[in-house]
C-alpha cells in the first residue's frame, strides 16, 4: 500500500498536467481573440465617437444612461427576450420531435433526414429572399396557400405589420434553424446504447414510455447543447433579421444586435453602439450563465450515478 500511494499521486499529478496542457491552446486563442475585443468595446462605450474621426471624447457612462431613457432600446430588449423564449421552445421542440420520430426507423428515413436539415445549410441572405416570397402579403406562397385551403381570412401583412412581423420572422427562423437541433438530438439518440432501449422494450414499455423514461434522460448532454446554443442565438440574433427587414418596419422587428449595427453605422455613433453591445453582453450573461451553471451541475450529477 505505502509504495503504491506516491506512484498514484504522481500519476494523478501527471494526469492533471496533461489536462492543463490540453487547455493551453484554446485559452490562448480565446484571450487573443475575445478578451481584447471585449475590453476595447467597453473602452469605446465610454466615448463619444462617430467611428470615422481620428479623435474621440470621453463622456463616462453617458451612453449607458441615455440608452436607459430610450423606448427604442427597451423595445429591442423585449424583442430579444421574446426571441429567447421562442428559440428555447420552438426549433428545439420541433427538432426533438423530428429526431424522436425518425429514430423509430421510418421508411424513407434518409430522405426525411436530408429534408429536415436542408434549410439549415442556406445562407442568411438567401433565407431572407426566399421568405420575402413566402411572406409576400397578397400573392406570396403563404397567403396563396391559405386562400386555397379556405383560410384566406388568416392571411396577414406578414412583414409589413409591426404587430405581426416578429412572429413572421420566427416562422422563417424555425424553418432555418430546426435542422440544428434535429441534428444534435438525432446524433444524441443514435449514441444511446441499444441495450438500454431493448431492456425497456422487453419489460413491455411503449415507445412513448421508452422515449421519456429511457432516451430523453440520456439525451441531457445534447439538450444542454441545443438549449445553450438557442439561448446564445437569441441574444446574438442578427443576420436573418437584418437581411429580411433591417429591423423594420419602423424598428418593430429590431433586436439589440441590429440596433447596435444601425446605431454604429447607420447613425455614426460608435460609442452608443458599443454601450448597446455591452448591455447585450450583460443581458446574455445574466440569462445564459445561470442556466449553463445549473446544467453543468446536472451533468456531473448524472455522471456520478
Amino acid at each position: 500500500m505505502t509504495s503504491v500511494a506516491p506512484a498514484r499521486r504522481r500519476f494523478y499529478f501527471s494526469q492533471r498536467a496533461v489536462h492543463l496542457l490540453f487547455l493551453v491552446l484554446p485559452v490562448l486563442l480565446f484571450v487573443t481573440f475575445f478578451i481584447y475585443p471585449i475590453i476595447s468595446t467597453f473602452y469605446l462605450s465610454l466615448q463619444d465617437w462617430d467611428g470615422i474621426s481620428k479623435s474621440m471624447k470621453f463622456i463616462g457612462m453617458a451612453n449607458y444612461v441615455e440608452l436607459l431613457h430610450e423606448p427604442r432600446f427597451f423595445h429591442a430588449v423585449l424583442n430579444n427576450v421574446t426571441w429567447l423564449i421562442f428559440l428555447l421552445l420552438g426549433p428545439t421542440g420541433l427538432g426533438l420531435l423530428l429526431a424522436a420520430i425518425l429514430d423509430r426507423g421510418l421508411r424513407g428515413e434518409r430522405v426525411f433526414r436530408i429534408v429536415y436539415f436542408l434549410p439549415f445549410t442556406i445562407p442568411a441572405v438567401a433565407v431572407a429572399a426566399i421568405w420575402r416570397w413566402v411572406y409576400e402579403p397578397t400573392s406570396g406562397l403563404l397567403t396563396t396557400v391559405l386562400n386555397v385551403v379556405g383560410l384566406g381570412s388568416l392571411a396577414q401583412n406578414w412583414l409589413g405589420d409591426p404587430h405581426v412581423v416578429n412572429f413572421a420572422l420566427m416562422g422563417a427562423v424555425m424553418w432555418w434553424m430546426t435542422g440544428f437541433s434535429f441534428l444534435v438530438f438525432f446524433a444524441g439518440l443514435r449514441n444511446i446504447p441499444v441495450e438500454c432501449i431493448e431492456a425497456a422494450r422487453i419489460e413491455g414499455a411503449t415507445p412513448w414510455q421508452i422515449f421519456w423514461k429511457v432516451s430523453f434522460p440520456l439525451l441531457w448532454p445534447s439538450t444542454i447543447v441545443v438549449l445553450g446554443i438557442s439561448a446564445v442565438d437569441a441574444m446574438r440574433l442578427f443576420d436573418v433579421v437584418w437581411a429580411t427587414t433591417n429591423g423594420g418596419p419602423a424598428y418593430a422587428s429590431e433586436v439589440l444586435a441590429t440596433q447596435m449595427y444601425d446605431v454604429a453605422f447607420g447613425r455614426f455613433d460608435m460609442g452608443r453602439a458599443s454601450a448597446i453591445s455591452v448591455y447585450l453582453l450583460i443581458l446574455a450573461g445574466a440569462v445564459i450563465m445561470p442556466y449553463l451553471y445549473y446544467m453543468s451541475l446536472r451533468v456531473q450529477a448524472s455522471e456520478a450515478e
Binding site: 487547455l23 484554446p26 485559452v27 480565446f30 481573440f33 475575445f34 481584447y36 475585443p37 471585449i38 476595447s40 468595446t41 445553450g228 446554443i229 446564445v232 441574444m235 446574438r236 442578427f238 444586435a257 447596435m260 449595427y261 454604429a264 458599443s274 453591445s277 447585450l280 453582453l281 446574455a284 450573461g285 445564459i288 450563465m289 449553463l292 451553471y293 453543468s296
Partner: peptide, 21 residues
C-alpha cells in the same frame, strides 16, 4: 472556471470584434 471563462465567448456578438480582429 476555465469552462465558464471560455463560454463567455459565445455571448460576444461578432460585429464588435471586427476592428481589433
Amino acid at each position: 472556471w476555465i469552462y465558464f471563462f471560455l463560454l463567455t465567448g459565445m455571448l460576444v456578438p461578432f460585429q464588435i470584434v471586427q476592428i481589433p480582429l
